[in-house]
Design a protein around this nucleic acid. Structure first.
Length: 114
DNA sequence: TTCCTGACGCTTG
DNA sequence: CCAAGCGCCAGGA
């Protein structure tokens, strides 16, 4: 019997998978999109579980400042920045440059299910 | 069952 | 403008 909590995690994975290449979003944006505006931390926790999923580009998810706070959780921490730069996202000092440009807000781009 | 920690975010000083 | 504190949800000991 699955609980609603598991559903929340699954929703997070789906949203992250929908992030287009060369774009990035924040934990709070995803949480807000799922209705848990205060559950940004929970989103990050879901990403931790997503670490086992190759279909979930967790490297495209950063905090609201665009800082690669979760890079330390990648296999090699540098993998996250490397992936982002490979997609065209400029990263410097563990932070995404022009985050306002690469920012991908599900509420603005995916406002179809709500 | 209770306490602590954590890939965050917002408000207040 | 910069720094610190509180609140949120979930999992592990």
């Amino acid at each position: 019997m699955k609980t609603d909590k598991e559903n929340f995690f699954d929703l997070v994975y789906q949203v992250v998978r929908l992030i287009p290449r060369g774009r990035a979003t924040s934990y709070g944006a995803i949480a807000n999109y799922l209705g848990a505006k205060s559950g940004a931390r929970t989103v990050g926790y879901a990403m931790n579980a997503a670490h086992t999923m190759d279909d979930v580009p967790a490297h495209r998810v950063v905090n609201r400042s665009g800082m690669l706070t979760g890079k330390h959780h990648f296999s090699p921490p540098e993998r996250m920045q490397e992936q982002l730069e490979k997609e065209g996202i400029k990263v410097e000092n563990d932070k995404i440059m022009d985050f306002n440009k690469v920012f991908w807000d599900p509420n603005e781009e995916l406002r179809l299910e709500l």
